[in-house]
Design a protein around this nucleic acid. Sequence first.
DNA 1: ACATAGTCTAAGACTCAGTCTCAATACAAG
DNA 2: CTTGTATTGAGACTGAGTCTTAGACTATGT
Lengths: 149, 149
Amino acid sequence: MPDQGMAEDMHSLVEHRLRRIDQRYTSGRRAIVDLLVTAGHPVSIGDIAERLPDLPRSSAYRHLTDLHAAGLVRRVAANDEFTRFELAEDLTEHHHHLLCVNCGKVIDVTLPSGAEQQVTSVISQLADTAGFQPHSHRLDVLGLCSACA
Amino acid sequence: MPDQGMAEDMHSLVEHRLRRIDQRYTSGRRAIVDLLVTAGHPVSIGDIAERLPDLPRSSAYRHLTDLHAAGLVRRVAANDEFTRFELAEDLTEHHHHLLCVNCGKVIDVTLPSGAEQQVTSVISQLADTAGFQPHSHRLDVLGLCSACA
DNA sequence: ACATAGTCTAAGACTCAGTCTCAATACAAG
DNA sequence: CTTGTATTGAGACTGAGTCTTAGACTATGT
């Protein structure tokens, strides 16, 4: 969890990015971003509705869409589940996901830099052979979390 | 694309797996499996409706659900797109996906075995630190396909 | 061949995640 | 304060995916 100073920097970055596309950093949007920061893992619309009961569903969708348009939020498709959302990689460490196929839990994990480099080089190989221009990647591991195992 | 012999073996494997859970390998199910085999990449319900116009949507869903329950089909969540389906890994080579963020195209790619081993070892590291029991994994690369670049 | 018990299917009603519209409100800048 | 623009809540709407049901099919026993 980021400390106060980091969180402040992050909020001003978010504000700046929104301003660039003529959008304001309002309380509703800030509530969503705060929730994503404190959650520390991808959240579904259901999670948001639970934690921000006064925020209408459609507003939550709109905020997420706007933040997504500003490149501040990304979508994570869990296995058979609903769409979840997390902060974009610019705002957090690059990480991957462990998805529990039993309880649906999503765990964020960060690779040691050596391992991450291995993955990146594997991806360049992949992309080259297909004439594909990679922007980002995701490595999801499906299995059972410690509680469900 | 698998040759005739491989396809036959695969169909009898599918039949056997269905039999184990008291289900038959009927024409509707076979049509879905054939389509997945010949497609060679994940297909959406829309694709299925287009190629099998006489098969009702709800039947397609049911077949896919049944095949999924038998462990013969897996779901692939494309980026912001609809759910797609492909044959389970037992029936095909283990592979990964290049997802075009512009046109939504999904390209299957197979890693050279050395690279695949690297990925696997990275995953064991990840899983160990979280007490996670990995079953399978997916490596998706997001970017632009050669046509959209 | 016939019966029967169980599986499979088409048709369509239904649910609910996600989108869209619009009138009312808040904000920024002069 | 006023005006133009962005934002919001409320709720209608869309469509992917699910569920139900009555009838068709298939395997097996007699």
